[in-house]
């Protein structure tokens, strides 16, 4: 009886949500009638918001990937906040898992020789690919967060194959601190040079080349290293075995 009531409730909620979503325009609607006030030119313009990002985005930031331009350049301060939230989450996981430190002196079965050899072979390849993802963040899909997750999964593979493996905490902390410092210093330099935090002060270069888009690649490399070391720290706190 309880399950039937729950199912009916779920269906009712689904119908209400579906009716609400039918009214929202997705995709192909023409927004060119939408006027907005442009503070730079000090007049009303008739460009729509998506048109503005798609057309002027490449000129404003020099980045080929508009999503990266929005995440790092237009909304760069939000990204700094996201990285801080991730850092706090990693700290929380580390401090909770510290309680279970005693339990980690357990017996573990060794992995198969096939898995050990394959993880040795694949580790370098996976780290290289993660670095490729965050270095090319302004040219191809991806960026700091997926690249960091790929690097952390390479370390996770080593933790799975060798139960006695553990990464050096000092190295992780140093890498994470340096990356965070790079992000903040890049923002403060922008503040110093042109008066706005995270201003894109480097030359844009030619779009679609690796050295283009100003400080976007620098910030994405910093975000990638920071996310990678934080997620590796979480993996280490959960799976590492101390001698």
């Amino acid at each position: 009886m309880k399950r039937i009531v729950a199912a009916i409730l779920a269906i009712l909620i689904f119908i209400v949500l579906a009716l609400a979503f039918v009214k929202i325009p997705f995709g192909n609607i023409n927004l060119s009638d939408y006027h907005y006030y442009n503070p730079i030119t000090d007049k009303q313009t008739s460009d729509s918001v998506p048109q503005h990002y798609l057309v002027d985005g490449k000129k404003d930031t020099g980045s080929t990937n508009i999503v990266t331009a929005v995440v790092v350049d237009y909304r760069g301060f939000d990204t700094l906040g996201e990285v801080t939230v991730l850092f706090l989450a990693a700290t929380g996981v580390g401090s909770i898992m510290y309680i279970f430190e005693k339990e980690k002196r357990r017996k573990v079965r060794r992995a198969n020789a096939v898995v050990e050899t394959a993880s040795q072979l694949l580790f370098g390849f996976i780290v290289l690919f993660g670095a490729y993802i965050f270095v090319h963040g302004h040219l191809t899909p991806g960026g700091g967060f997926p690249g960091g997750a790929v690097i952390a999964s390479a370390f996770l593979l080593l933790y799975l194959a060798y139960p006695r493996f553990h990464a050096e905490h000092k190295t992780l902390n140093v890498a994470e601190s340096l990356a965070g410092l790079t992000f903040v210093i890049a923002g403060l330099l922008g503040l110093l040079i042109s008066g706005s935090f995270l201003y894109n002060f480097l030359p844009f270069g030619v779009p679609t080349y690796l050295f283009s888009a100003g400080i976007i690649p620098v910030i994405y490399v910093a975000v990638g290293v920071k996310v990678g070391s934080e997620l590796t720290g979480i993996v280490d706190a959960m799976m590492g075995v101390r001698e």
């Binding site: 573990v108 079965r109 060794r110 992995a111 898995v115 996770l156 593979l157 799975l160 194959a161 139960p163």
Partner: peptide, 10 residues
């Protein structure tokens, strides 16, 4: 690999 290691008892 994580699921396999769990099933194996590692």
């Amino acid at each position: 690999i994580a699921a396999a290691r769990y099933l194996e008892g590692g």
